[in-house]
């Protein structure tokens, strides 16, 4: 828990960047399942791309912003060959939606096929 807090905290005062609320709606949670198509380990935020089947049988291409690669490592997400996210994985993402209405969101946690859950951040910034 502390590691998760620290990554959020480290991301705030240290790096000049936009606020979460400039891009995402904290009041619009989303839970979505699909197949990972690509994971980009880049700064300042890593990205997760997934194909999601909607209720009409169409495939929608979703993308999610994650934390920076260093923060993801500290949260326990590692290289794909060590059990981290990789293309082809069926995963469930909890997060919040982008404000611009695109198929885009910010990851709060990711549930992997084997049941592991990686939490990037939580709702309560004061929690320990």
């Amino acid at each position: 828990m502390k590691a998760i807090l620290m990554l959020l905290v480290m991301a705030l005062p240290v790096v000049a960047h936009h606020s979460v609320q400039a891009e995402f709606d904290l009041d619009k949670p989303i839970t979505i399942s699909g197949k990972v198509t690509k994971v980009e380990w880049i700064n300042p935020h890593s990205y997760l791309y997934m194909d999601v089947n909607d209720d009409k049988g169409n495939v929608k291409h979703w993308s999610f912003e994650m934390a920076g690669p260093g923060a993801l490592r500290r949260a326990g997400l590692s290289r794909s060959d060590r059990g981290g996210l990789k293309a082809g994985d069926m995963i469930t993402v909890n997060g919040i939606l982008a404000k611009d209405g695109s198929d885009f969101g910010l990851v709060k946690n990711v549930k992997l096929p084997d049941g592991r859950v990686f939490t990037i951040w939580t709702d309560d910034p004061n929690a320990k």
Partner: peptide, 11 residues
């Protein structure tokens, strides 16, 4: 991120 920003809030 730039293309998704809807306001000017930043740290």
């Amino acid at each position: 991120d730039s293309s998704h920003l809807v306001n000017k809030e930043h740290h």
